[in-house]
Design a protein around this nucleic acid. Structure first.
Lengths: 336, 336
DNA sequence: ATTGTAAATGTAAGGGCTTTCATAAAGCCG
DNA sequence: CGGCTTTATGAAAGCCCTTACATTTACAAT
């Protein structure tokens, strides 16, 4: 069943059928109805490939992410997909893993699929602002690139992110002002937002004229999901003589581990140890006591990102950077 | 840059270039090298749409799932995507939500995108074996349909699932044989696997000549992620006089709530209350004590599903049902 | 009725690939 | 070296749309 069959049945030319199909206005209501009726009856669906060839687009967006099984990224993908679909776009998904070479290959591969744009989900795609990241620049010369939770200055690259710096600064100030100064910052990735959070913490110390001590900034290099590993890591720090009464974690999962660590060491939360997570994920309420965490507005970010994308594809000039503010959600693992 | 440009540069016809591109053997090694070199130099990529039009396929598989942000489904999608890509296929994702009408529309929509097959992830797509599920039959007449964690008899529908019945039977037998008989089965979905798990529990009671009591089979109809809601639900049951010393949950998240319920009521786990989850997700180790759960072999399921799919598309006759056995993973919330 | 203008419709040329079929080259044998 | 089969290559016909452009129709103004 092709457009020719429809045109014959309706007694019109294929051009007219095509116009009806594409919502072109220059069609008599009568003709339009006739064609639509035939299409309805016959159950005809236009061939997406031919359409793609003609229009040079299949209204498809590539979604790149390191690991779509990650709780946070999965949520992001979910919201992005829903918003895209609501806007008439399909999503083709590609999980790259954390290896740079794979990321490059995946990006090229997905672009060769002729997507209209690529959304890169997660700050791990930008390890550093000044690194070359040439592969992203190359991609951006072909289609608009949307970054979620990362910042990168480049034409045709659009960033939608949460101000992690400010959020972490606020968190840290809250702790300091409640009388805690030996605060451990625990992170597990040198990604763009991982570093922003770190500098946010530091800035709070500077604001209060407190000294910075690198010992209180610890990178856990194993898998974040290895709770026992994180516990051991914290134990080792303590055994080395590091004393801390609060742990600020770059992710909720790390905070879950910190809570476990506290329980193993019979530390009362929050009196002996305050714990703060990040992302305000479902994990916050799985914990006992429930986790204080930072909500980084994932849903709004995704919504805005897709809006920017669709408007950009529509030919509108859009801002290249959109920044939301995070919100500190206070729960049982802190006393402030 | 088209295949014509390449053919000119290489001094061959476009047919030859096409043959090289598609791995056709009837090309002189010399010619092949020449063409490949030119392609390499010029950075040419074949136009995916034209390719799709010619081959009537873009090597793309549709992935349908109710909610890709669900921890379990997200993991499934992740593994499926990776296996598909390794096999040379792209994945287009579509989240349908739990509304039947949306599921139907999404399925049609994704098929109109000319995917080679559709993978329906999650047992929620099959509410009952004898329900019409006509929309799936219709789809299956167009492309092979793969079901993960669901069972449905229909030509061109392939099911890959875990034997939830047997796994739950084993779990229940373990509890019974360790001396616990007032066992609550808590589930939150009448999906295919939700019901299988239920009958698995029941069968264990029958095997031990114990009476079945419907009061001990409770459907929580709210969102599984509403931990407090689940806690309240359990409290209400207790207040109504239902006494139970074990809770078998259809999902880990429910079990997390059960643990919280125990803590609120100062019940010791596992001495006062045994708790068992399902899926063996990350949540099991977030819990304190860690959750006993059933591993339903998600990764193997996904791998097998994709293998079956690719072989089917390759023209091989494949079994329509592949069933794995779950594994009971004993942790701190049970004493057996 | 006549012309002019706008709206509706049709024709045909792509869009970039695959693939059939015809042809040319190559390899083989006696 | 002729005649055969096999292999490599090319020409051209699709695949099914969109759309620029040509043509026809409708309708208002004169």
């Amino acid at each position: 069943m092709t457009i020719y069959d429809i045109s014959k049945m309706a007694g019109v030319s294929i051009a007219t059928v095509s116009r009806v199909l594409n919502g072109n206005t220059n069609v008599t209501p009568k003709t339009k109805k006739k064609v639509l009726d035939i299409i309805e009856q016959s159950g005809y669906t236009p061939n997406a490939f031919a359409r793609g060839l003609g229009l040079n687009s299949m209204n498809t967006i590539g979604i790149l992410c390191a690991d779509s099984s990650d709780l946070y990224l999965a949520k992001a993908i979910y919201h992005i997909e829903r918003n895209l679909r609501a806007g008439g776009y399909n999503s083709i998904l590609c999980c790259t893993g954390y290896d740079l070479e794979n990321k490059k290959n995946s990006l090229n591969l997905i672009i060769s699929q002729k997507v209209d744009s690529v959304i890169m989900v997660g700050s791990s795609f930008i390890e550093s602002q000044d690194a070359d990241n040439q592969y992203i620049r190359d991609a951006a010369s072909q289609v608009p690139i949307m970054l979620l939770n990362a910042d990168f200055d480049c034409p045709n690259v659009y960033c939608t992110l949460c101000d992690d710096f400010k959020a972490m600064q606020e968190v840290t100030l809250n702790l300091i002002d409640s009388g805690i100064q030996d605060i451990l910052y625990l992170y597990n990735s040198k990604s763009y937002s991982g570093m922003k959070k770190l500098t946010g913490c530091q800035s709070a110390f500077l604001m209060r004229d407190l000294p910075l001590d690198k010992k209180y900034q610890q990178l856990f290099s194993g898998s974040r999901d290895d709770i026992d590993g994180v516990c051991r890591f914290l134990n080792q720090l303590r055994e080395k003589g590091l004393s801390f009464h609060a742990v600020i974690c770059a992710e909720d999962m790390l905070a879950i581990a910190a809570v476990k660590y506290a329980r193993m060491n019979r530390l009362e939360i929050p009196s002996d140890l305050s714990v703060i997570g990040y992302n305000n994920s479902l994990l916050t309420i799985c914990s006992e006591p429930e986790l204080t965490s930072v909500d980084n507005r994932l849903e709004s970010l995704c919504q805005q990102l897709v809006k920017t994308l669709i408007d950009t594809l529509g030919g509108n000039e859009m801002p290249q950077k959109t920044i939301f503010s995070g919100e500190l959600v206070k729960r049982g693992t802190t006393a402030f």
